[in-house]
């Protein structure tokens, strides 16, 4: 069984086809969410090595064990259409947005609804592409992909999916570089933004600061 077949075997057959109306869609979404959410909460997604594709044609981002190569292709393409490298400001590549999003998908403090929505949206986008054009998203040329993204933003579900990606792009553009994006403060420099001082250090980044504070309690308070 191939990796992609293994992954599909996790998903009930009734879930594999993109729904045609909103009611059916929400049911589809709920079923898929349950599976993914359970996996994320249990912390087991990272153990599903079969979620990775061995397709040599597409490079998997280092350390990624959440998305297969087809999903990565769709995500990368969507990010570059939503925030294109058009000579105005830093690119997705320069900001390290993709790796930032892969980190967010595993971050226990991130919005779990957004995490599952983002992943499910990738599969949804692919199925819509197949339904509308007869081709997988990855088989579309650039112009077709741009039309597909535009189409998605005109649907309720697709707009929310793209909106979540836009928010994460903005985080990669504007949050402190300590979180792995906004490389060399490229986003701040582009927008002529003056950051606040002090900026966070490793001990004060959001995952660590409460532990840092608790380690500093006086003995009488423990």
């Amino acid at each position: 069984m191939s990796d992609s077949e293994k992954k599909k075997s996790l998903t009930p057959k009734s879930d594999r086809k993109a729904p045609t109306d909103m009611d059916a869609f929400f049911q589809w979404q709920t079923n898929r969410r349950s599976l993914l959410k359970a996996a994320i909460i249990a912390g087991t997604l990272s153990q599903f090595s079969f979620l990775q594709s061995c397709d040599d044609a597409i490079e998997i981002e280092k350390g990624n064990d959440l998305l297969d190569s087809n999903q990565m292709t769709i995500l990368k393409s969507a990010l570059n259409i939503l925030f294109p490298d058009d000579g105005n400001g830093p690119s997705i590549e320069l900001l390290n947005t993709l790796n930032y999003i892969l980190w967010v998908l595993k971050d226990s403090g991130a919005n779990p609804t957004h995490q599952t929505y983002l992943i499910e949206g990738i599969d949804w986008a692919d199925e819509i592409a197949i339904e509308k054009s007869g081709k997988k998203y990855s088989e579309l040329d650039q112009a077709e992909r741009e039309r597909a993204i535009h189409y998605y933003t005109e649907t309720e579900y697709g707009k929310e999916w793209c909106s979540i990606m836009m928010t994460l792009i903005l985080e990669s553009l504007l949050l402190d570089p300590i979180y792995g994006a906004n490389i060399n403060e490229a986003g701040w420099k582009w927008l002529d933004h003056t950051p606040g001082f002090p900026q966070p250090d490793e001990s004060n980044r959001y995952e660590n600061v409460l532990t840092t504070a608790r380690n500093a309690y006086p003995k009488s308070s423990v």
């Binding site: 966070p200 959001y206 600061v209």
Partner: peptide
């Protein structure tokens, strides 16, 4: 109990 040194201007936090 966060002390002054634990606060930074971090939008994420």
């Amino acid at each position: 109990w966060l002390k002054t040194e634990h606060f930074s201007k971090d939008d994420m936090t």
